[in-house]
Design a protein around this nucleic acid. Sequence first.
DNA 1: GTGAATGCAAACATTTTGCAGGGTG
DNA 2: CACCCTGCAAAATGTTTGCATTCAC
Lengths: 168, 168
Amino acid sequence: MDLLSMEKNKAKSQSSRESYRWFWDALDSYLSDKNLKQTQQRRKLIELFLKMNNHISAEELHDAARKAGHNIGLATIYRTLNLLSEADLVEQKSFVNGRHVYEVNMPGEHHDHLICLKCGLVIEFENEEIEKLQERIATAHKFELKAHRLDLFGHCANKEECDLRNTN
Amino acid sequence: MDLLSMEKNKAKSQSSRESYRWFWDALDSYLSDKNLKQTQQRRKLIELFLKMNNHISAEELHDAARKAGHNIGLATIYRTLNLLSEADLVEQKSFVNGRHVYEVNMPGEHHDHLICLKCGLVIEFENEEIEKLQERIATAHKFELKAHRLDLFGHCANKEECDLRNTN
DNA sequence: GTGAATGCAAACATTTTGCAGGGTG
DNA sequence: CACCCTGCAAAATGTTTGCATTCAC
């Protein structure tokens, strides 16, 4: 009954460079489909975005770009993220506030979240049983299920790190 | 295996006047605890809010107040909704866009949603099995679970009504 | 070269805040 | 009568849009 081991470990696969091949490929075909262009800024932004942890806001990506020495307008950040969103390559979420955060949309994978209310720590998890139940509930209501969002809010265990993050 | 009948029917209990006694009581004690005051505007707004269906935005409540003949500033709407939010009497959510919607926070009850992507129809449901699984997942990650949000997105069955609502 | 992409600034939408006046306990 | 609450307007926040210029194909 070890739930933890039932969840796939995505962190590893996401950190290697090659694992995002599918992302760049999908982007390429989306761009040529729509007669859109590859640009320096887009490539740089997406590289940065993929290197950062998930749940990035436009502002964070903007800062990251500036720190990497690129002078890219905030408008371009939004336009790029919206593009990726329309291409179904990232997902736009709003956890709290009016702030949108974006995350890579791995096809066929789901992104449920455990979120610490004190420090904002986000842990991803996946649970097949819950997925199945969701399908059953949708069917019972004659809904054709397209997507879902499951966020669990609580307090994480690690007091020190939690307090640390909280001071930001 | 009839999931529908496993869910409590809240619509009925919410529509009767008396059923919100607990809400007003909780509000009273919150206000006196914090040395806050009862005012005409607050009472009116809350009465309206409780009479309306759930998932109300500040703007919608503002309109409702205007239509009821009250001249209440939008700032007061926000301040009231935030007050109720801090008192844990309503829950602030953001389904889409940057728009917050609010719903009554029935103590001990959960508000999961089935949302039609085409027409915006919202159906509430409750499922004990999912609740239990959530608790287990949180525990496995050493989280103390405080709240959750589960939204299922899909397409509803009723084509005509769906198209109708969609034109708004 | 044509049309899309960029940066900037202005526009926009939603929510918060400052302030003077009015109401509640 | 102290202090909270209100309405209004201004500010703050997050996101989008218009426009002239630059860049990709």
